[in-house]
Write a protein that binds this DNA or RNA. Structure first.
Length: 375
DNA sequence: AACACGGGGTA
DNA sequence: TACCCAGTGTT
């Protein structure tokens, strides 16, 4: 990396390093992808880092365990189908991560025979940006490479009293330069993880717990009483509204699903065949029309369930209507029928899973059998 | 530089 | 509700 001139006096730099590593040694969090010093498994470190992109630790842990159970090695992941990978990613969000993970696994084996051991080679792989390349290089391979995520950016902005929006290029460059200086020396992986843990558990966004902070004496923002103001919150646009109508078509006790196109929102996932409803349009009519255009002639009945979800950039509303078809298109393509017991293992978004679970018993695939059993 | 891309935790 | 989270890729 090209770095600006040093910004940390060397005495201050060693004090920070010493305090951070001592704090780490005094009791860091135990997490399933963390190993004793020098015993890191690069494959596991990589999987965890990708899952942790924009996702909090507590949310990741169960998905990580489930994923490693199915794909314990790089080879297992490289041999899996995209559908299998997405199934184990189902509910975690940002599904492009799962697709890129599989693509990178295949490329790693083809070109490097394993997880490559340099920042440059890592950064060239799908799903690796500056953060993940630095994290894997330092944690898995002990290389002196910086990584700046949201937590580290906040910690460093306070430590160095760095003004300006963290996402602005000039601020980013300063924070990365700080991180690069700080990581130089023994135990780079643990130094980086200590910075991240500090941001997650002590140097919080709204209420930094400076009394418990190992580097509070070195903190420039605290010295100026500005630790609560830095870094400035970033402006966000209001989520746009997305109204979707979908059809509950049951055939032989199985539910009709359609695969979304790769890329874009929920790319590659299965969902109830549906359509966006434009503002002012009538949902059942819009649904029937859109499905007919895709070769699926559905008679749309009454509403069965509705769920709403707020994503970062969308306010998503899904409404399910009973649907009946005279004849299904030939199998293959993007349609499939799924039995109720298959649903837990399918690649569905959290919203679609919630919608299916919200269906009244009369609308669900198992309904007919259950009614007969009661007779 | 701005936007798309999920879902859940926290105050 | 608002903000953010172990970010990356596209336009």
């Amino acid at each position: 990396m090209v770095l600006p001139m040093p910004v940390l006096p060397s005495a201050r730099r060693s004090a920070l390093r010493r305090r951070l590593l001592a704090w780490w040694d005094a009791g860091h969090r135990e997490l399933p992808w963390r190993f004793p010093t020098g015993e890191a498994d690069p494959y596991r470190v990589w999987i965890s880092e990708v899952m942790l992109q924009q996702t909090q630790v507590a949310a990741v842990v169960p998905y990580y365990l489930r994923f490693l159970e199915r794909f314990p090695t790089l080879e297992a992941l490289a041999e899996a189908s995209e559908d299998e990978v997405l199934a184990r990613w189902s509910g975690l969000g940002y599904y492009a991560r799962g697709r890129r993970l599989r693509a990178a696994a295949r490329e790693m084996l083809a070109r490097h025979g394993g997880v490559p051991r340099s920042r440059e080679a890592l950064a060239a792989l799908p799903g690796f940006g500056p953060y993940t390349a630095g994290a894997v290089a330092s944690i898995a391979f002990g290389l002196e490479e910086p990584c700046v995520d949201g937590n580290v950016a906040r910690v460093l902005a306070r430590l160095g009293c760095v003004e300006g929006a963290p996402e602005a290029p000039a601020t980013r460059a300063r924070l990365w330069a700080l991180a690069a200086e700080l990581v130089r020396g023994p135990r780079p992986g643990e130094l980086n993880q200590a910075l991240m843990d500090l941001g997650a558990t002590v140097c919080g966004k709204a209420a930094p717990r400076c009394a418990r902070c190992p580097v509070a004496p070195c903190c420039a923002a605290r010295a100026r009483g500005r630790e609560r103001e830095l870094p400035p919150a970033r402006a966000r646009r209001a989520p746009r509204r997305l109204e979707v109508a979908c059809a509950v078509v049951v055939q032989g006790g199985r539910l009709l699903l359609e695969r979304r196109p790769p890329g874009g929102l929920f790319g590659g996932l299965w969902e109830l065949p549906g359509a966006e409803v434009a503002p002012g349009a009538t949902a059942p009519a819009a649904l029937a029309e859109a499905l007919a255009l895709r070769g699926l002639r559905v008679r749309v009945g009454k509403e069965l369930a509705r769920v709403e979800r707020v994503l970062t950039h969308r306010r998503l509303a899904l409404t399910a209507f009973r649907g009946s078809v005279a004849r299904l298109p030939p199998p293959g393509g993007q349609l499939r029928l799924a039995a109720p017991e298959e649903l837990p293992a399918l690649a569905l978004s959290a919203a679609t899973r919630a919608l299916v679970e919200a269906l009244p018993a009369s609308g669900r695939p198992a309904a007919r059998r259950r009614i007969r059993e009661e007779e």
